[in-house]
Computed example of a mutant assay.
Amino acid sequence: MKKFLVFVLVFLLGAGAGAAGLIFGDPSLLSHAPKPVVEALPYNPLTAVSVTESGIESNLGSSGHYVSFNVEFDVALAALTSQGGSKAGAEGGSGTGSPVLDARIRNDLINLARSTPYHEFTASGGLSTFKTQVRTVLESIFGPNTIGPIYFSSLMTQ
């Protein structure tokens, strides 16, 4: 019984120390607030940066169907840098120049694909609807009116 009480006491002290470390050491770990969005920054094609996210693959919303695509889009430079990307990194050929930002974009696009049923994707106008949804996802990351034209350089469904 004494060993059990010692174990419980050590466990509670450890859990309390861990929680205190999270709360007082780095409170941002407890908040899931995204980085600040660039507000009222219109897209300007003369200063925009081209970004390519390639190799995005996911099952579609209905079982047995799959989508693989590469998406290319232009984004306002200030919006890209405010989220941790860089012009030099984006011009390198693939991604935004920030592995964290690339992972966030890819994750959000995969979640979009998983929530899109195959019949909606392949229906008349389905690709236009999907492109509009991709724009919504990208603008939720970079801010409203910061995304230029969106292109699928490769798209395959199965």
Rank of each mutant, 00 (worst) to 15 (best):
L77T: 12
L22K: 00
E139H: 03
V137Y: 09
L138P: 09
Y43R: 01
N59V: 08
V134C: 09
L80S: 03
A90Y: 00
V10Y: 02
S98C: 09
M156E: 13
P34K: 02
T157M: 13
Y66E: 11
L155C: 07
V67R: 14
G89I: 13
S98M: 10
K3E: 05
L5R: 08
S115P: 06
L30G: 02
T52C: 04
V8D: 03
D74E: 12
P117R: 03
D102V: 10
T129L: 14
D108Q: 15
N107Q: 10
I147V: 11
S115I: 14
F73I: 08
E91T: 01
F11G: 14
L29P: 07
I150E: 11
G125W: 01
S154M: 10
G89L: 10
F24W: 11
S94V: 15
P36Y: 00
V10K: 01
L41K: 07
R135F: 10
V67D: 13
G143H: 05
G21T: 10
G64T: 08
T52R: 15
S128C: 03
G84Y: 07
L9W: 01
G92E: 06
Y151G: 07
G85V: 02
L41V: 13
A90K: 00
Y118V: 09
P144K: 13
K35L: 11
T157L: 11
V49L: 01
R135G: 11
G61Y: 07
V37L: 09
K131S: 12
P99M: 09
S94G: 14
H119C: 02
G61A: 11
Y66T: 12
A90G: 06
T52P: 12
F11W: 04
V49P: 03
A48Y: 05
G55P: 03
L41I: 08
S82L: 05
T96K: 02
E72T: 13
L5P: 08
V10G: 03
S50C: 06
